[in-house]
Each structure stands twice: as structure tokens, then as C-alpha cells.
């Protein structure tokens, strides 16, 4: 499949969401969910597209997109680590784990490393409190982590595709 065609296909998924809600302005958040799901983040081009399709001013769309933590306006790195900072994890040593990741991989929470290899995100309770402290590495949950374990796992994760 060439690039234009795949772009088309993704657009269609976004269109389907808007159609399901009759292109109502109320569908804005659902539509943004859909854009983020198929494109990975909310890019300018798509926001403009949604703005036209739903007849919602771009300024309002930015207002909504930046209000909700779930939405991201920047592309994610090749790999993602989502560290749980919920209460159960916090009291079991997340601050030390967070600084170990920051120091070892030079990436700040909520940001993507300059070389685009790693995004570090935080979440409030990923529902695995029984395994706290917990982290999600490329979609897989790792529980009962220590700074050493995490540094090792992330190191291997980003080296894999070198």
C-alpha cells in the first residue's frame, strides 16, 4: 500500500466516527479520540480537517485538545514507557524510579527523547496496584519494579532495534 492510500484509509476511520455522530459539534472529543487512535497524535493537518468537518473553530479545538491529558499534540517516540504515579505506586518508591529513568535515558516525564527513540509518560493508576510499583513498556505491564530493573528493561527495549 502506498502512503497516500494508507493516509486515505486512516482518514476514513476518522470520517466514520464523525458520521456516526451526524457531524455534530458534540462529537468533537470522540473525533479527537479517533484521530489519536489512528494517527498516534493530534497533528495540525488533522485538527484543521476536523475543524472544517465539524464547523468548530480551530481555537476551540486547541482549547479542548490541551485541556485533556489523554490527548497529545506531538508524535510519540519509537518506544514508550508509561510510569504509574498513582498513590499505591508512589508510596512504594516511584520517585526514585522516575529519577533513575530521567538520569539514565535523558528524558523528562511527558516528553520524547531528542533522537525520537523513547517517550516517557506518566499515568495515574494503571489498575495494577497489586503489582505496584508498575510501568507499561511498549504496551506490556511490568510490576514490582525497582530502579535497577527498569533501567535494564528500558535499555534493552530501545537497543533492540538498533
Amino acid at each position: 500500500m502506498n502512503e497516500a492510500a494508507s493516509k486515505d484509509k486512516r482518514r476514513k476511520l476518522v470520517d466514520a466516527t464523525m458520521r456516526r455522530y451526524g457531524h455534530s459539534q458534540y462529537a468533537l472529543i470522540e473525533t479527537l479520540h479517533s484521530v489519536q487512535e489512528v494517527y498516534g497524535f493530534l497533528d495540525d493537518e488533522n485538527l484543521k480537517y476536523v475543524s472544517d468537518a465539524l464547523r468548530v473553530p480551530l481555537s476551540k479545538i486547541y482549547g479542548v485538545a490541551t485541556f485533556y491529558h489523554f490527548f497529545t499534540l506531538k508524535p510519540q517516540g519509537d518506544h514508550t514507557a508509561v510510569l504509574c504515579t498513582g498513590t499505591a505506586c508512589y508510596i512504594k518508591g516511584v520517585p526514585a524510579i522516575l529519577s533513575a529513568i530521567r538520569n539514565n535515558f535523558s528524558v523528562e516525564a511527558g516528553e520524547t527523547r531528542e533522537d525520537g527513540k523513547l517517550s516517557l509518560l506518566t499515568a495515574r493508576c494503571i489498575g495494577s496496584c497489586g503489582l505496584s510499583p508498575a510501568i507499561v513498556l511498549d504496551g506490556e505491564i511490568a510490576g514490582q519494579i525497582t530502579p535497577e530493573i527498569v533501567v535494564d528493561r528500558i535499555g534493552r527495549m530501545i537497543q533492540n532495534d538498533a
Partner: peptide, 25 residues
């Protein structure tokens, strides 16, 4: 089903309603 988008305040009922209406919560 309506999906929340990660804002604690949207659990508050009037904010939640605003969010279902597609606005900032």
C-alpha cells in the same frame, strides 16, 4: 459510551456533562 480523556475534574458531574457535550470539562 463516551470516552473521558484524562481530566480528574471531569468526574465532577457538571464538568462531566460539559465533556459529553464535547466541551472542555
Amino acid at each position: 459510551i463516551r470516552l473521558g480523556a484524562g481530566a480528574f475534574v471531569c468526574g465532577e458531574e457538571t464538568a462531566l456533562i460539559a465533556s459529553i457535550e464535547g466541551k472542555r470539562g
